[in-house]
């Protein structure tokens, strides 16, 4: 194992994420892509296998230090698949060619070990990465561009907390349609306030409601549009706490729930698998009940979970830059994004 391989780049990424220097998933995605570009162009590797080992080492490092960070690992995982594909392509070009027989048997019987070296693999990969970078950079706009298909005039849209993607999406639609947005303030962090201020600034009619008012307001809402932390393999969401309640209320009133998700949010793991403890992550209760409350705190336990799991049946549609997909289709997207061998790397 390339344990002693150079991990300093990942470490700085991890520490930056931890210290909150890079905050949004989009920034993390770009940082990760840069990091991989550097690895491919500057690190020493003789063949695809070695390169993949290096990247796997980095994925492990990230999952160990930041079990909740999925963006960085998903991007690295995707690049692993890209390396495999490029390798296959390059070897095809070389004229080694795969016979029909090989194509049929390859997947089941023997695994390719990718240890042969190719001179132009590096360039191919770098080209691919540049393409991928453009994809990342335009992803938000591509999602926002679909706004007009989903938001119609005089509709009432409900969203929860703050999400950059949702913000762009709504603002894009506001250019041509006039509609109303209800923002749930999403305690205990109350990011919804910021979201509402930003939306109001760009001329959208915005109302902030407390979390407790969601059910009462839901009957009037036409659509729920939310962002998410990550999309699990079954199409369920790992989203900020409070979203589950909103999704249930939407189900009750048969209001469609749309989730804006970049491709890198798709995570090839299930809830309650090995991650069960990290999913139960709780933040400091100080935001709910201040530390200065006094002796009462000696007698009570306060839980402040960060995430909610929203089961796939409560989600109507995922909107990525490629278009809309139903939750049941997530498994298919996953197999397009990642190689099955890379799903679990621990």
């Amino acid at each position: 194992m390339p344990q002693n391989a150079n991990l300093s780049d990942v470490i700085t990424l991890i520490s930056d994420i931890k210290h909150g220097k890079v905050f949004s998933s989009y920034e993390i995605a770009l940082r990760t892509e840069n990091l991989l570009e550097k690895v491919i162009s500057e690190e020493k590797w003789a063949n695809a296998k070695e390169l993949m080992q290096q990247i796997k080492g980095k994925i492990q490092q990230v999952t160990q230090s930041l079990p909740l960070e999925t963006t960085a690992t998903n991007i690295m995982r995707h690049i692993l698949k890209v390396i495999r594909e490029e390798c296959d392509q390059v070897s095809k070009k070389k004229g080694e060619g795969q016979s029909l027989h090989q194509l049929v048997t390859a997947d089941q019987s023997e695994e390719r070990d990718y240890s042969e070296s190719h001179g132009d693999l590096k360039n191919c990969l770098l080209d691919h990465l540049t393409e991928y970078k453009v994809e990342l950079e335009t992803s938000t706009e591509n999602i926002a561009a679909q706004a007009l298909e989903h938001i119609h005039t005089k509709e009432i849209i409900l969203t929860v907390g703050k999400s950059n993607t949702v913000e762009k999406f709504l603002k894009h639609a506001a250019g041509q349609r006039s509609f109303q947005v209800i923002v749930v303030e999403a305690g205990p962090l109350y990011h919804g306030h910021k979201m509402a201020a930003s939306l109001a600034l760009s001329g959208i009619q915005t109302t902030v409601i407390p979390d407790s008012g969601v059910f009462a307001m839901m009957s009037r809402v036409n659509k729920v549009i939310i962002g998410t932390h990550s999309v699990m393999a079954d199409g369920g969401l790992r989203a900020a706490s409070g979203v589950h309640g909103v999704a249930l209320a939407a189900k009750h009133y048969s209001v469609p729930v749309m989730v804006l998700a970049h491709m890198y949010k798709l995570t090839p793991s299930y809830v309650c698998s090995h991650e069960k403890d990290t999913f139960k992550m709780c933040a400091s209760p100080a935001n709910i009940i201040p530390y200065s409350t006094g002796p009462l705190l000696n007698k009570i336990n306060v839980y402040n979970p960060i995430f909610d799991y929203v089961p796939p049946e409560l989600v109507t549609l995922f909107i990525s830059h490629q278009g809309g997909n139903a939750p049941s289709y997530v498994y298919r997207l996953l197999s397009e994004l990642y190689h099955p061998d890379d799903y679990e790397l621990y």
């Binding site: 201040p290 530390y291 200065s292 409350t293 006094g294 002796p295 705190l297």
Partner: peptide
Amino acid sequence: FQESGIGQMG
């Protein structure tokens, strides 16, 4: 310093 209530364990 940290704000804390009187009689708290911490």
